[in-house]
Simulated scan of single mutants.
Amino acid sequence: MDSNIISKLKPYLVLITLFLALQSCKNEVKKTDVSTAKETQETTPFFKLSLAQWSLHKYVNEENGSPFNFASQAKSMGFEGLEYVNHLYTKEIETLGFDKVIDSLKTLSEKYGMQNVLIMIDGQGDLADPDVAVRNKAVENHKKWIDAAQKLGCHSIRVNTFGTNDPALWVPSVVDGLKKLSTYAATKNINVLCENHGWLSSDVPVLMDAISKVNMDNCGTLPDFGNWCVKRKDGAMWGECLEEYPDKYAGIEVLLTKAKAVSAKAYDFDENGNETTLDFPRIIQMVKNSGYTGYVGVEYEGDRLSEKEGIIAIRDLLLKSAKTVK
């Protein structure tokens, strides 16, 4: 070919080469994007991770750590949500005042980009007490925590429903207490959740019968993977267990039908990182089957590992289990 023609065509050849190179890069980017998206889809669980503050109760109660560090601690361990325990702030409330504590928690959660999920309420009276006066007092005591949950941006509070181990007395009592509190909570767009937390609250058919009788959209359950003791020695709330609910997996499955939160409790782990008493993959499959896609709260209740080690072990087991669901 004539050198003059080649010279004239050279700019066009450069443009054609550049165009082909850009197309090649574009196609490669598309392949990479698809691959990354697929990988993300496969590794992202169907639920979000929150941390139950009870996992750090030794840090607060025994090591004199500040409960105000909760948001930063949870953030550093890879969590998105916070589940508060009200009585871990007893001293702070006495010193600073209730409103100041709640305002501080809101500020700290915003600082660390954390979602406030719920507050676990203890020590505010028994909503299932057979004595109506005691029950009504408990309802009133819980109202300020419903207000606090609303201010923090939580969706729920968790309540206790011990009362009595006599179903004939317990059901009408707890229905009355829950309905009164749920009626107030509905005005604040807050849910009132019953956890299987011992006694008749861990007897699933009895608890579900009570929730059915309350018959309010904002009164539901918080299924806990543990907590299956229905009778303890000398009738105590805590301590040596004499009788457990016979089928915890069937119990969890039923509780999930009314679940607005889930508590992934664990006690200890084997050399492969699996819980020694609970089949996490089986439970997580049930959670998926129920259609639940909200926060799953990590709650470490063991003694062998440190609190942080236990928290990380549950977190990792949840993520591993999520990869096995169908």
Score class of each variant (00 low, 15 high):
201 S>Q: 10
38 K>A: 13
146 I>N: 05
176 D>W: 00
291 G>Q: 08
77 M>A: 00
144 K>C: 01
240 E>P: 10
273 G>K: 13
93 I>C: 07
25 C>T: 08
60 V>M: 03
146 I>K: 09
31 K>P: 01
223 P>H: 14
262 V>F: 14
326 K>C: 05
115 Q>T: 15
2 D>A: 12
63 E>H: 12
211 I>G: 08
33 D>G: 04
325 V>M: 06
25 C>E: 14
300 Y>R: 02
54 W>C: 09
163 G>V: 07
302 G>K: 07
210 A>T: 01
204 V>N: 05
248 K>P: 06
4 N>L: 14
102 I>S: 11
157 I>M: 07
128 A>N: 01
300 Y>H: 03
293 T>P: 04
33 D>K: 13
249 Y>D: 00
313 A>H: 07
50 S>T: 12
291 G>K: 10
41 Q>N: 15
222 L>R: 09
318 L>N: 00
199 W>Y: 12
129 D>C: 06
213 K>W: 03
45 P>H: 08
150 Q>M: 03
155 H>N: 09
140 E>F: 06
19 F>E: 00
62 E>T: 11
144 K>A: 00
80 E>Y: 10
74 A>M: 09
210 A>N: 02
298 V>N: 11
238 W>Q: 12
211 I>W: 00
150 Q>T: 03
302 G>T: 10
200 L>F: 07
258 K>F: 00
152 L>S: 05
194 C>P: 02
298 V>E: 03
65 G>F: 05
19 F>M: 13
280 F>S: 01
28 E>Y: 13
33 D>P: 05
174 V>A: 04
55 S>I: 05
